[in-house]
Design a protein around this nucleic acid. Structure first.
Lengths: 112, 112
DNA sequence: CAGTATCCACGTGGATACTG
DNA sequence: CAGTATCCACGTGGATACTG
């Protein structure tokens, strides 16, 4: 049947976008990158409250792999690494705002 | 510090919206409800390919709890239950489309 | 400073069999 | 027809200790 093949593709695409944004720390990291433009590793760790080194690295790797975050390493001593959003990452921001708006409107109707 | 309290609230709101859309079957179920308007349990199970009864029920409960899906039960024999999107659920659709667009654009750059 | 290695807990997804 | 109960597998999240 050729009926709803495009629907499945849409679902797959949207699912991919969701995966990028999901994960416990992706949103907080993205928010920090958004308000800082360029930020170093330890400063990021400080701003994303509660995150551990393991999780920060894991999430950053994911986001870099998705092409959303850019990593620039300076070969100095002591080490210096800067993180920032890519163009693709910036394109995610309007979606983030829409999610925020919908969530804000609908969170209040619930106890939590 | 009172610096970025609103940012945390935004994150929480967006996170809530993400939670609603995440989960393996929520998107497929929502898509089916979107193209059918009103649909019965077994028909839903047929259209959402691969889903088991356990998962369909679990996901539906979630979506109903979020106020996105409406359940109408007719006390007949044999049983008849109809599912549909609520107003709130319909408001989610533009976001779904944006996710789809972003995903489509960015999925192609990857192997998978 | 900016990470990695190891090892563990728990939540989400799911198969199977059964029911008002 | 429209579910529920039970029990299991695996992925994601995370604490702790260590390193170029």
């Amino acid at each position: 049947m050729m009926t709803n093949n495009h629907v499945n593709k849409e679902i797959a695409s949207a699912h991919y976008a969701l995966k990028v944004l999901s994960g416990k720390w992706n949103l907080p990291i993205l928010a920090a990158l958004c308000s800082n433009r360029i930020i170093r590793y330890n400063e990021l760790k400080r701003q994303v409250i509660g995150i551990t080194g393991t999780m920060l690295n894991q999430s950053l790797k994911e986001l870099i792999d998705y092409g959303i975050v850019q990593r620039v390493q300076y070969n100095e001593v002591p080490p210096k690494v800067e993180y920032s959003l890519t163009e693709v990452g910036l394109e995610l921001m309007p979606i983030y705002e829409q999610l925020d708006l919908w969530g804000e409107k609908n969170l209040e109707r619930k106890g939590d």
